[in-house]
Amino acid sequence: MSHTAHIRSHRKPRRNASRIAMRAGVAGGVLSTLAVASASASASAAESETTQTMELPTLTADLAAQVAQSAEATQQAAADYELQAERDAAAAKAAKQAEANLAEAKKKAAEAKKKAEEAARKEAAERASRSAARPTLTATTSSAPAATHTSTATGSAAAVISFVKAQLGDAYVSGGTGPNSWDCSGLVQAAFRQVGVDLPRVSQSQSTAGTQVSLSSLQPGDILYWGSAGSAYHVAVYVGDGMFVGAQNPSSGVVEKPLSYDPPSGAVRVL
C-alpha cells in the first residue's frame, strides 16, 4: 500500500458541470437582455432624434407660411388704408370744389340780378324822360307843316328803311349786332352799312354823326335819338309817315312805332 493512500487530497472538489453550464447560460441571457435593452434604448433615442429632426422642418415651414400670410395681410391692410385715405382726400377736395362752385354761382346770380335791376331802373328813367319831353315835341310836330315830313323814301334812304323793316320782330340783346338780335345802335349801324355809310357803334356818337335837323323837317332815313346830342341813350331810323323803326328793349325787340309812342329828342341826317 502506498504511503499516500490514506492522505486526503487538498484539491477543491470539482463543481458539477451542469450547474456551471446553467449559470453560464443565465449570465449569457442577462447579458443578452441587457444588450437588447441597450440596443432598443439606442434605437428609441435614435428614432426620437430622427423624429424630432424630421418634424423640425415641418414646423419651420408652417411657421414661415404663417409669417408670410401675416405679412401679406399687413400689406393688404396698409394698401386698403392708403386707398381709403386717398378716397377721403378726393371726397374732401370734391366737397370743397362744390362749395366754391356754389359760392361762385351765387355771386354770378347776384351780379346778374343787380344788372337786371339797374337796367330796369334805367329803362324806367328813360321812359319818364321821354314822357316829360312828349308834350313839347307834340306841340312842335303838330305846329309844323305836314309837307315838311317827306313820306316817300328814295335811293339810299329806301335801302336803309328796307333793311330795318326786314328786321322787325328780331330780339333785342344788349350789344347785339345781328343777324337775328340787335341793340338800338347795332341795328342803325348795320342799316347804314348797306349803303356804304360807316357809322360809329354807340348811340352817343351816332347822335352827332351827321347834320342836326329839326323834328319838324324829318325825312325818311334820318337818325332819331333820345337824350341830348353827344350823350344820347337810344337811336332809331325814321321811316316816314310819322313812324320809326328801332330795337326798343328786351320785351318788345325790333318794332315799328309812331313818333307819338316815344317822341325823340332830336335827329341827324347822314344821307
Rank of each mutant, 00 (worst) to 15 (best):
P200N: 13
P200Q: 13
R201N: 03
R201T: 01
V202F: 06
V202Y: 12
V202Q: 09
V202S: 04
S203K: 09
S203F: 12
S203T: 11
S203I: 07
Q206P: 08
S207P: 10
S207E: 11
T208S: 13
T208M: 12
T208I: 11
T211Y: 08
Q212R: 05
L215I: 15
L215S: 05
S217K: 13
S217C: 04
S217N: 15
S217P: 05
Q219I: 11
Q219H: 12
P220F: 00
P220Y: 00
G221D: 14
D222L: 09
D222A: 07
D222R: 05
D222E: 12
D222K: 06
L224I: 01
L224T: 03
L224S: 09
Y225M: 05
Y225R: 03
G227H: 03
G227D: 09
G230N: 04
G230Y: 06
G230A: 07
S231H: 08
S231P: 05
A232W: 02
Y233M: 03
H234A: 12
H234P: 14
A236Q: 10
A236R: 11
V237P: 06
V237D: 12
Y238D: 12
Y238C: 09
V239Y: 05
V239G: 10
V239T: 15
D241F: 00
G242I: 08
M243F: 01
M243D: 09
F244T: 02
F244M: 15
V245N: 06
V245W: 10
G246V: 00
A247Q: 07
A247L: 04
A247E: 08
A247I: 03
Q248D: 08
Q248N: 13
